[in-house]
Design a protein around this nucleic acid. Sequence first.
DNA 1: CTGAAAGCGCTTACAG
DNA 2: CTGAAAGCGCTTACAG
Lengths: 334, 334
Amino acid sequence: MATIGDVAREAGVARSTVSSVLTGRKYVTPETKARIEAAIAALDFTVNQGARALATSRSMTLGLVVRFHESEFTPALATYIVAVTDVARAHGYRMLLLTDFGAADAVRTVIRTRQVDGLVLLNVVENDVRFAPIVDAAFPAVLVGMPAELSGLDAVDLDFPAAARTLVDHLADAGHRAVTFVTWPDEVFAVGRTYAAHFRDACLEQALRRRVVVRILHAPVAPDAVKEALRRVLDSNNRPTALVVHNDAAIAMLPFVLRDLGLEVPRDCSVVSLHSAELGRQFGIPYTAVESQPERVSELAVGRLVARLLSPADAVSTVLVKPSLTVRGSVACP
Amino acid sequence: MATIGDVAREAGVARSTVSSVLTGRKYVTPETKARIEAAIAALDFTVNQGARALATSRSMTLGLVVRFHESEFTPALATYIVAVTDVARAHGYRMLLLTDFGAADAVRTVIRTRQVDGLVLLNVVENDVRFAPIVDAAFPAVLVGMPAELSGLDAVDLDFPAAARTLVDHLADAGHRAVTFVTWPDEVFAVGRTYAAHFRDACLEQALRRRVVVRILHAPVAPDAVKEALRRVLDSNNRPTALVVHNDAAIAMLPFVLRDLGLEVPRDCSVVSLHSAELGRQFGIPYTAVESQPERVSELAVGRLVARLLSPADAVSTVLVKPSLTVRGSVACP
DNA sequence: CTGAAAGCGCTTACAG
DNA sequence: CTGAAAGCGCTTACAG
């Protein structure tokens, strides 16, 4: 493996001059530069990133901290992982993957060993154990998902309250007055998934405002259990005229249940949903919906983190991605 | 951030002695060792991995090369990413995530910049463009998935031929003589997914051996298209008595189609499948099946790579994970 | 058993 | 504009 010294010798200059053209931080006469570039090409030289990191004390690497909660339904995780990594590379950063191994300790260790310049946290919960070591070390980080109010960290997420209002309005505008809101199981709220709570709160508020009566169903995510829960709602005498669904498992299973019961959308029941874009695409979920925007969220999150690395004193910010409604004709007048 | 020099000063020893207790490669008297450990604790010292990597020329980092093929159906990708990373950590390795950016160049660059000690390739295809730079550099790597015969690289995968034989036998044993084999669309074969071809070949061979007549359906993966394709097969006069499905999109949509047509499994049609464990779990796919084993495959793959890092001269090996059949009562006598 | 020295491959003031 | 020197934080022969 050629080193910067080999290149310098080949080009007949000092190592520091080679370094100048590598970093581009210093003017080098075109002729010298050309000679150095020729030497680099001839020797097939590539800078040793580790050595550079040691010299600059910047690793040009970000850490992606992923957590897995068994109780959840997250086929969309890969989309975020890949999107975040792609965006990071576009900014010139590599991505170190940190899976959960006693999350708080993992974060503490990676910060202290100086392996990464900043952290991206996926699957954030309200009072995430990963926050403390980051805040303690005043380490640059960005959250994908909303924390509780005062985490002191940058965060990016879909605007779940706005999404809820959009969906409720869509139903209210069509004349619905009694809807069932299918949301996540209690555990999801309990572990502090703010997307669940924020969506629910906004949904109920907007319903009140629009004079829509809402019943809440905390549906499980296990396939059979969620079907059974949906069946009970749809097979009753006072069937709601519409469903607002915020539960990926439920929306994936809903078509089965509807067919079982011989119900048609929107004739017998209107449906709107908020679900992951990935799920929607792969299962062709045919309902009017707001879908997650993993690419957009990832782009903004990494962009924020990179900006903070450049100016650490920036004020902490929270960015909410505007939801967009895709109308698919699953809503009719009741 | 405390350095090894700070620790040495605090403990009143030389830096090299501190290094000896850090690496554990040299005997140090218990008293000195205790003093050094106390100093490490007092200063909250953690070794700078980059500096260590530079000194040892081993990064203790593996690269995970992920490719995305739009045409595919891979909600299971995250499972592999997380599993591989977990296993690597258990072996003391960090994981650098490399998403596709002109795959061959990406691999070449990461090898030359010495950022990783070895590579794990996910989503391998038959004549993967990522092979050449690895073989050229004689770089340690392991493939998750089967390459064409002579890649010269270690590989680990589910034993797809054995899985095919198991499923065909299961149907043949129950007396089925005319089955339809639902497989991946042509593109999947065309891009060189060996799992598709290996399964198909073994399926057809075993059917011949067991005197089962097989019709082949290359089903698309788009939700509506795959439903339509299944509908045509199941709604015909000469409906097969059983289905062998190897196509995650098809198996996910099959229950819809069956209910639409008012068909019951196994009364009207038997079903066996090979699909991803992730899909099976999240959608509760109710059919007798062989499921992918992401954890097991990941464990063996990383284990193989780590072993090769220790003894680079080992013979190249191909490991096939034995499939296991989960019987769920979706097969009856025709 | 311990320590002084050299070196891993870079970058960055600082002279010239 | 170019180069010699020091330094980033470790490890590893090699003396003692």
